Each structure stands twice: as structure tokens, then as C-alpha cells.
Amino acid sequence: MEPLLSVNNLEVIYDKVFLAVKGISLEVPQGSIVTLLGANGAGKSTTLKAISGLLGPERGEVTRGVVRFAGRPLDRLPSPRRVALGIAQVLEGRRVFEHLTPEENLLAASTMHRDGAHVRSLIDRIYGYFPRLAERRSTRAGYLSGGEQQMLAIGRALMAEPRLLLLDEPSLGLAPRLVQEIFDIVRRINQEEGVTILLVEQNARAALAIASHGYLMENGRIVMAGPARTLRENPDVREFYLGGGSRMDYQRVKHYRRRKRWLA
């Protein structure tokens, strides 16, 4: 069965000089949660923006490779057309409209819908996933907590009724309890709405707990891939991404890098 999303040999360059993504390939099956892991600067967010069509404002461009969604190549399609096809991205850092209330934020994301009753139904469904937003529906979004703003950012993306949801670092800056709550809701959205999810995360432990498959990215390349359980049990991933090992020293880092080159 063809995956909902496939990325083949993708390269991305910024300012026609800096090669940020270096020939990566990945697949996201329909109805799955797939996570793209790696440290800050690995190229994860750039990969998401190449899929959603948001590279242009940052002077980035795809110079090689093909991104296919539901069998269709996305080359040169502007971002609004990709949203219309069913791709929505929640950007890192939340970026809600702080001067608007949560309800106004959700309404602002509903412009593709002309049926007012359908819009109301979508908002009520989002409040069902995020009761805290319903409680604070009349408060300006700028006064919400970081976790509430992240919930609002996800809810706003869901107003587009996406087939594929791209989540960029949803755990960033949140307390562990809130991370657990948001990831539980993400899993519910996947199971109950059938939304396919590509999750970019530095918090490998939380991401691998809900994903079925994972890719590990370093310096613009995929260096490891496999079922989430396999990655969780891999000694390198446990030691360097899950905090399963003792304090690193330079010799052990060099040995790790040699092993990663062999695995790649």
C-alpha cells in the first residue's frame, strides 16, 4: 500500500549556500504516527517546511528530490494549495494570535469552510479534546499558559480538517506533566479522527511512546530508522537520546559517531 506521505532523496539549501537537508528519504503510512527525532539544528524543522511549502519566507528551497502526498508530487505547489489537499503544520513556538481569544483564533482558521454549522461543530470537537480552551475561550490568547497556547495551535490546525498533521516540537518549553497531556491528546486525535501525524521532536522518550515508527536525523541526514520499539531498545538511542547512559566523554562520542556512520 502506498504511504500517505513519501519523501525521496530530499535536499534543501538556504541562501543558495547552506545545505541543511542532505538527501533524506522517509515514509509516513496512512493513519500512523511517525516521529522525526534529532538534536537542535539537525534539519528536522526544515524537512517539515519542505513538506508544507513554508521554506520560501526563510530563503530556503528544495534543490533535489520529490515529496509526494497521496501519490501526488508537491513540487512548486504553494502552501495554501497543500493545505487544501489536506496538509496542516503546527509551527515551533506556537505562534497564536495573541490579541485574539481562543475562539477567535479558531474562527480565523476556518476561512476555507462556508457552512457556519460545520465550523461550530469543528470548534466544539476541538473543545472536546482541549477542555481548558473551552474554559478560557473568552481570554486573550496572549494570557494563556504555554501549554494552553500549544493546545490552541494544534486546535487551529485541526480546523482545516487535515489528513496529515505536521507537529514541530510540541513539547518545547513545557513541564513534563503538560507534555504527557498534550501527547495523550495527539494520540487520541490520531485514533479517533484518523489523522496521520508526522511529529518532529527533541524529546525522544515522549515521541517514541506514541509513534509506531521513527527516524533519527543528524546533521541533515537520516542516520537510523525503524519501528519505535526498536529505536527505544537501541543502546545508542538509549544512551544519547533517552538519557539511559552515564556522563559522556570525548572518546565515547567519537566511538558513537563511528558506529552511526556504519549504521547509516
Results as ranks from 00 to 15, higher is better:
194 G>V: 04
93 G>S: 13
167 L>C: 07
184 D>A: 15
105 N>P: 15
197 I>G: 00
176 P>W: 04
128 G>S: 03
156 R>Q: 08
104 E>H: 10
184 D>L: 06
168 D>E: 03
157 A>L: 01
134 A>Y: 04
123 I>Y: 02
132 R>D: 00
120 R>G: 08
137 R>V: 01
103 E>Y: 02
176 P>L: 03
187 R>A: 12
177 R>C: 03
121 S>K: 11
147 G>S: 14
111 T>S: 15
105 N>K: 10
161 E>T: 10
114 R>E: 12
97 F>E: 14
194 G>M: 00
164 L>G: 05
151 M>L: 03
104 E>G: 10
115 D>G: 06
116 G>I: 05
192 E>P: 09
101 T>P: 08
181 E>G: 14
133 L>I: 10
125 R>N: 12
182 I>V: 14
127 Y>V: 06
155 G>A: 12
192 E>K: 13
171 S>P: 05
155 G>I: 09
187 R>T: 03
162 P>G: 05
174 L>R: 15
151 M>K: 05
127 Y>Q: 01
165 L>A: 04
99 H>W: 13
120 R>I: 06
197 I>R: 07
123 I>A: 00
114 R>P: 04
113 H>K: 00
192 E>F: 07
150 Q>F: 07
177 R>G: 09
93 G>W: 14
163 R>F: 01
95 R>C: 13
138 S>A: 13
185 I>G: 03
143 Y>W: 11
150 Q>K: 09
125 R>W: 09
119 V>L: 00
159 M>R: 02
114 R>Q: 12
141 A>R: 09
137 R>D: 00
195 V>S: 05
171 S>M: 07
158 L>A: 02
99 H>R: 15
114 R>K: 15
107 L>W: 13
153 A>F: 13
164 L>D: 06
100 L>K: 11
140 R>N: 12
153 A>Q: 11
189 I>P: 11
193 E>D: 14
195 V>C: 02
105 N>W: 13
159 M>W: 07
169 E>D: 08
159 M>L: 01
197 I>A: 00
110 S>D: 00
167 L>I: 02
119 V>H: 08
156 R>S: 11
195 V>W: 02
136 R>L: 10
115 D>A: 02
191 Q>T: 01
128 G>I: 06
129 Y>M: 10
190 N>S: 04
188 R>H: 12
176 P>R: 08
127 Y>T: 07
141 A>N: 06
122 L>N: 13
168 D>V: 01
144 L>A: 09
118 H>W: 12
145 S>F: 08
189 I>R: 12
120 R>Q: 15
118 H>I: 04
115 D>S: 03
139 T>E: 14
122 L>Y: 03
126 I>A: 14
136 R>E: 01
175 A>N: 06
169 E>H: 08
160 A>H: 08
182 I>H: 11
155 G>M: 11
185 I>D: 12
184 D>F: 00
144 L>K: 05
133 L>V: 09
121 S>M: 08
98 E>G: 11
107 L>C: 08
161 E>W: 02
185 I>S: 10
133 L>P: 10
142 G>N: 05
154 I>S: 13
159 M>C: 05
174 L>H: 11
168 D>R: 05
183 F>Y: 07
104 E>K: 12
140 R>S: 09
151 M>V: 04
142 G>L: 06
99 H>S: 15
156 R>H: 07
125 R>C: 09
165 L>E: 09
193 E>V: 02
